[in-house]
Design a binder for these strands. Structure first.
Lengths: 180, 180
DNA sequence: TCGAGACGGTACTGATCGGTACCGATCATC
DNA sequence: GATGATCGGTACCGATCAGTACCGTCTCGA
């Protein structure tokens, strides 16, 4: 197991970056929380920016798997994504979507972190589009609108901290699909 | 005009914070850009956090006035907000909504900056609710859904940089109001 | 048994962070 | 023409930033 420290760093980074923000968490903090030595960190990553990108990719993979599971449990209904969100919106430590947060913090749209975060949304859109076409919805714009609704609910939950935005977004999604 | 320096600081802060992020802009930078002396800054504000809150409030006032004007120019149609967004989404330096960005950067939901940013969305919701009721839409949840759609479009535009998210959100809003 | 590689810990760098103290210049009012 | 408020500029503070260098330790395979 040569890369045990790397996993610990990624786990700590995912937690800390999500809870407090990317810029707010220094390397020192990451080292103490993960229990990884300073040199080991720079052996596994080129620097903090590299860790940030790796963390976003890790988050994206976990998040997509989580969503895939939720949708699969609902017999492939993509609207189950809203119910999955609703269940997490009430948490006191809810901080929105790490991908959105990363795009906000990494202001430069050409930065690796910003692009990695945008990639997550592309993957999410692709996943939802597949689910929609499997259910007979061929309009490719529907998946993008679903993501728009998911993101809108997520941002709203950032200040409301209740399941309501997810329910409201789901109502709009139902209306949209009923019309399509 | 005793507070000339204060205005210059607010203007510089609004620009820099929006373009690069709150944490990314140091006090040094604010001073050189605004041309204000270090002492003058701390005479007008208790510190950077105080300036951040004042900047958010200033942004909120400007933004609401801008939206009010756009809606008024469309004979009070609240959906004109989507057209106003669409016009700004394509800009190369578009960075989303300063209020959303501030809520993301100020992770602590009890922080003054986070609360000030949330206040903006409350004021926006109130404004849209007034416009909706004036047009015969009494369901109070409609205004919240409009804000959800506006925020969803804004976040989407952060990575798409085109007017499309605004158009898509407007379609959903039209569908919603037609149904109500 | 011995080396190689991964590891944690510490010391250190230059730069920047937010914030304080003090300076002299400017300007309006009396 | 003196007074007081506001101003820009600079020096400085301790703390923290990301990053580098080097140390001794542990484990594992040859």
């Amino acid at each position: 197991m040569p890369t045990q420290a790397r996993e610990r760093l990624l786990r700590a980074a995912e937690e800390l970056f999500y809870a407090e923000g990317i810029r707010a968490v220094g390397v020192e903090r990451l080292l103490t929380v993960s229990g990884v030595g300073r040199a080991s960190f720079y052996r596994h990553f080129d620097g903090k920016d590299d860790l940030v990108v790796a963390t976003i990719r890790s988050y994206s993979a976990h998040r997509l798997a989580w969503l895939r599971e939720a949708v699969a449990a609902a017999d492939g209904d993509p609207l189950a994504a809203f119910d999955a969100l609703a269940a997490s919106f009430g948490a006191p430590d809810y901080r929105g979507c790490a991908s959105i947060n990363a795009m906000v913090e990494a202001a430069d749209p050409a930065s690796a972190a910003h692009l990695a975060a945008a990639d997550h949304k592309i993957a999410l859109t692709t996943f939802l589009r597949d689910r929609l076409t499997a259910r007979g919805h061929t309009d490719p714009g529907l998946a993008e609108k679903l993501v728009l609704l998911l993101d809108g609910a997520t941002v709203t939950a950032l200040r409301e901290r209740s399941a309501r935005p997810a329910r409201q977004a789901r109502e709009l999604a139902e209306l949209m699909l009923a019309r399509a």
